[in-house]
Computed example of a mutant assay.
Amino acid sequence: MAPYLESVKSFADVTVTDAGVDTLEFLEAATGLVGLFDLLGSPAFIVVQKDIKGNITKVRARYDAAPDKSATLEQLVENEKGEKKRTATEGLMWLIRGLSFTCKALQNAQANPKEEKLSLAFTKGYEDSLKTFHGFMVKQVFAIAMTSCPYRTDFFTKLANDPNGGPSVPDDKLTKDLDKWLAGLENIVQRIETFYAKGKHGEGF
C-alpha cells in the first residue's frame, strides 16, 4: 500500500487521443476512485460507491464481450448503438455523472483550502452535477451523505497518509498531485459529456 493517489491509476495518465478515451485505462482509474469514498469514513457514501461500481461493471462487461469494438469509450458506445438495451451506454452515462460529482466536489475543496466543512464542497458538487437527474428519495439519500462528510483536515490527512505506516505525502505535493488527478478527470468527463450530447447517446434512458 501507499498514500491514496500513489496507489491508484491517475486519470491524468489515462490515454486520450483523437480516437477517444482508452477504455481499460479509464476503467482502472475509475475503479481506483471508488476507494476515495472509504477515506470519507461514512457509511452514507456506500450508496455512491455501489452506484459507481455497478456502472463500471456494465462498461467492463461490454468490453469483455466485444473487445475489438470497445478499445475506446466512444467506440464502445457507437458499437452498441443499434442494440435494444444499450446497457453499457447507460452505465457509462451514469458513471460519468458520478465521476463529475466527485470531481466538482474535490475541486471545490481545493479552491477553498481554509473551509473546514467538507460537506459544503460536496453539497455544491452534487448540486452542480447529479442532483438534476435524481428524484426526491435519492436526493434525500445524498443529502444525508453530504452532511456525513468529515472535516477537511481529517480527510486530507487520510489522503496523504500511507496506511502501512510509510512516509506521508507533503502538503504541497498532495495539492499538486490532486490538482493533476482532478484535471485529468475533468478532461475525460467533459469529453464524454460532449460526445453524448452531440451523438444523442443518452436519449431513451
Rank of each mutant, 00 (worst) to 15 (best):
V14G: 07
F142I: 06
L73H: 02
A61K: 13
E115I: 14
A88M: 11
D13N: 06
F156Y: 02
K158M: 02
L182V: 03
T17D: 13
A109T: 03
A121C: 03
D171G: 02
S100M: 13
G91D: 08
E116P: 02
F101D: 06
A111I: 07
F26E: 07
P113Q: 09
P43L: 06
G35E: 03
K104F: 00
P67A: 00
Q107I: 05
F136N: 02
G20N: 06
M137Y: 05
H201N: 12
D68G: 12
R97G: 06
T72L: 13
G91M: 13
Y196L: 01
F136A: 05
G82R: 11
V21S: 05
N161E: 15
V48P: 04
G35S: 10
Y196F: 15
E78W: 03
L33H: 08
G166Y: 09
S42I: 03
S100C: 14
A145Y: 04
A109G: 08
L33K: 04
Y196K: 08
G166I: 15
T102Y: 00
T17Q: 12
Y151P: 02
T123H: 03
F101P: 00
K104R: 07
G32A: 09
F37D: 15
W94E: 04
E193K: 15
F195Q: 12
E25S: 13
L39K: 10
R60K: 15
T72F: 05
F136T: 08
V189N: 07
L118Y: 00
A19V: 14
K69V: 11
N108E: 10
V14P: 01
A88S: 15
F122L: 12
A19K: 15
N108I: 12
I144G: 02
A105K: 00
D22T: 09
G35M: 11
S10G: 01
W94D: 01
S119F: 05
F136C: 03
L95W: 15
D128A: 05
G98C: 07
L174Q: 08
I96K: 13
L36F: 15
H134F: 00
A197G: 00
S70F: 07
F133I: 06
K198F: 04
T23F: 01
C149E: 01
Q75W: 06
E203W: 15
P150L: 03
H134P: 00
S168E: 13
P43G: 04
T147Y: 10
K124E: 13
P170A: 11
S7W: 08
A160T: 03
K173C: 05
V14Y: 08
A66G: 11
D13T: 02
G184H: 01
S129Q: 01
A88W: 13
K58T: 11
G135K: 09
F205R: 08
E203F: 14
E25L: 08
S129G: 00
R60M: 12
E90I: 14
S119V: 00
E186Y: 04
D128F: 00
K200D: 12
V47Q: 14
K81M: 02
